[in-house]
Amino acid sequence: MNFVYHVEGGDFTNAGSTSSQVKRMLKKIGVSPEIVKRTVVALYEAEVNIVAHAYRGDISVDLEEDHVKIVLADEGPGIPDIDRAMQKGYSTASQKVREMGFGAGMGLPNIKNNSDTLNITSEVGKGTTIEFINYFQ
C-alpha cells in the first residue's frame, strides 16, 4: 500500500498531522508500539523539517508486509553540508522554529537514531530528500 501526503512550508498549525495519520495506520495494522514510536518520531522530526526549512514537500509512505519505507521529498533551499547537518547541535533554524520547540540541531540525529536505514540526498537551491526504512521485526 502506498499513501502520499502533502506538506506546506511554514504551516506550523498542521505540522505533525501526517505523522499522526501514519501513527494511527501503523497501530491499526498491529505494528508493535516500540516500532510505531520509532517510526513516527523519525517521521515527525522530518515533517517538522519540511515545515521549518522548505517551501513544500510530499511524504510518501510505502507499507509492505515486513517494513515501512518513508520518503520525504521537499522543494527548498537544500542542505549544503549534510555531514555537518547530522552533527548534534548544528542548526540553521529561524527564531520562529525555535519558538515551536525545535531548531536545536537534534532533528537529523533523532531521525537517524529512530530508523533502520536512512538516506539523505540534497541539492542546494532545489531541495532535500530523506528516505528511511523501519522493519517490523
Binding site: A15, Y44, A104, M106, G107
Partner: peptide
Amino acid sequence: DLMSDVLTLKDIDKLMLLTGLSNLQS
C-alpha cells in the same frame, strides 16, 4: 521546552512532561 529532547526519551511509562512550551507542537 525543547521538543526534540522530549522525542529522544525511551522510557515514557507513566511519565509527565513539564513544559512552558504551550502550542500545538508540544
